[in-house]
Structure formats: C-alpha cells, structure tokens
C-alpha cells in the first residue's frame, strides 16, 4: 500500500516553502465508505496531505539526514467539504527550523480558493527525547520514499 496523499509538487523553494497538489478522485476506495452516497474527503487525510507536503519540505532542508516525525498538529481548520473532482493545494511554509524541531504553517486551497489552515510541529527525533535511541537508518525517508521524490524532481541536491 502506498500512503501518499499528494500527487505532485507545483512549487518547491528549498528550506522555505512548498506547494503540492492533490486531485481528488472517486477512484479512491475510501471515498465510497466516507460516506456511502455522499463522498467527502476526510479531514484527517487533508492533515496528512499537508504533513507530507511540509514533512518533505522540512526533510529536504536538511538533505533528508534527519528523521522528521510529525509531533503535533498545532492547528487544523477547514471551511467546507471537499468532493471528488476537486483539486486541493497544500502550501507549506517553514516558519522556523532548528536542530531539534521545525514549525510549519500551511494553507489549504480548494480549486484555487483558500479553504483551510494546518500548522504542524515536526521533531527531528534523533535530537530529541533525551536518552532514547532510534535505529540508525532513516526510516522516514527510506530509499522507496526517495524514489518517489525523484518523480517530484526535487532530489537534485
């Protein structure tokens, strides 16, 4: 299973800002259950879409050397439902990044119109949670994941 909730990057400014696009399609299995006869995109998956957009932005800022984990959804607000055929745009901006963590603010648009906000705190977990040790290999940005990035043309660094 591929847990990927963005289709491509439309803009990518290293260490600063990224814009990703997600086209919502009725071919997505879950929309038939959420809800039968009334498909709407679950808010949780829009948060995930923003987390992927912002997470890749944050990871790339440190050349994917850090394990970037979503630590906290600081704020998530959506103004209306999103239906099949709609196009979502996730615009993530790094407000701050340091050794321990990164903070992003995000704006969600539906068919070009602002419709929500998702702000996220990411942890660079190797630098945190004093005393705890994590596997050496980067299990967030795996090789599989990096190959996906190549399709987004942002692995050139």
């Amino acid at each position: 299973m591929r847990w990927i909730w963005i289709d491509r990057f439309a803009e990518f400014e290293s260490g600063r800002r990224a814009v990703a696009i997600k086209n919502v399609s009725l071919a997505e299995e879950h929309l038939h259950d959420h809800f039968p006869g009334y498909p709407v995109v679950p808010a949780s998956l829009m948060i995930e879409g923003m987390a992927q957009t912002a997470g890749i932005l944050v990871g790339e800022a440190r050349n994917f050397a850090e394990k970037v984990i979503l630590a906290k959804v600081q704020r998530a607000r959506f103004e209306h439902e999103v239906r099949p055929g709609d196009q979502l745009t996730y615009e993530a901006t790094i407000e701050r990044i340091d050794d321990a963590a990164a903070y992003t603010v995000g704006r969600v648009c539906c068919n070009g119109k602002p419709m929500g906000e998702v702000d996220i705190v990411f942890s660079h977990i190797d630098q945190n949670l004093s005393g705890l040790e994590f596997p050496e290999e980067n299990f967030v940005f795996t090789e599989d994941f990096k190959s996906l990035l190549r399709t987004y043309h942002i692995d050139h660094r």
Binding site: K72, R96, A100, Y103, V121
Partner: peptide, 10 residues
Amino acid sequence: ESIDFLDIVF
C-alpha cells in the same frame, strides 16, 4: 508532553 516544551519555547 515533551514536544510541547519545544513548542512553548518557540
């Protein structure tokens, strides 16, 4: 929680 401390400092 632990992550909140980072957030508060920020």
